[in-house]
């Protein structure tokens, strides 16, 4: 149902795209970026909750939200690159602070899996991953501030593109697209949580059938948290 809302936005959005076809990528790119950033920060907040409560579900939430945000971040980098090619004729421009910051944030979060994977004890994995998520979550806004400052220093005018200066119709579409993207993200998080939960229940039941003992019923090591 929520994805339905998102699809509707997709069909509605082209109506307003009066600045050429490529401009439409704006409705995907920017909301995706904003949602991914919120996802990263949310991952950090969930990690704080994990360290406070030590309830695995918080670690799981943190994991899922970072997981999906990284996927979105890849989308942001790809769409951003296409947009850059279309408007400036180059696939990559270093003076677009958003894009550069995103690359740095993406590189940082890409280490999340190696970090998890190279810790064997699940509890330790969750704890270290949480510390990582908090540090990285705090790093995201700081990094954006730093990179933006670097660019503003040389090209003062590159800054304001997002919120201001949009005609109301485009603004509305943008807003709907943003909400749609947010809902998509929320749905995916829910879906992913449910699927992880089901997998875990299945494994627990199978173990019970096999006679309660805990050894070596694993289907291989995984970096994902378990409930």
């Amino acid at each position: 149902m929520l994805t339905g809302a998102f699809a509707m936005v997709f069909f509605y959005a082209p109506l307003d795209a009066d600045q050429g076809f490529v401009q439409k990528i704006f409705y995907v790119h920017v909301p995706m970026a904003i949602v991914a950033l919120i996802g990263f920060v949310a991952g950090g907040i969930c990690a704080v909750m994990y360290l406070r409560t030590r309830a695995t579900k918080w670690d799981m939430r943190s994991y899922v939200s970072i997981h999906l945000s990284v996927i979105l971040a890849v989308g942001v980098l790809v769409t951003g690159s296409i947009w850059a090619r279309a408007s400036w004729g180059q696939w990559w421009v270093w003076d677009e602070p958003m894009l550069v910051s995103f690359l740095i944030v993406f590189l940082l979060y890409a280490t999340y899996w190696p970090l998890r994977f190279s810790l064997e004890d699940k509890e330790k994995q969750a704890r270290y991953a949480s510390v990582f998520a908090i540090v990285a979550g705090a790093f995201v806004p700081l990094n954006f501030a730093a990179v933006r400052m670097a660019e503003a220093y040389i090209h003062p005018q590159t800054g304001a593109t997002v919120a201001g200066g949009l005609p109301p119709k485009m603004g509305l579409t943008f807003l709907v697209a943003l909400i749609g993207m947010g809902l998509l993200f929320a749905t995916l998080v829910k879906y992913e949580m449910a699927s992880k939960h089901a997998t875990f229940r299945l494994r627990a039941l199978r173990r019970k059938l096999a006679g309660d003992d805990d050894d070596l019923m694993l289907s291989g090591r995984s970096a994902a948290p378990q409930l």
Partner: peptide, 8 residues
Amino acid sequence: RRYGERAA
């Protein structure tokens, strides 16, 4: 106390 999925 558990270690991973194994009980220690």
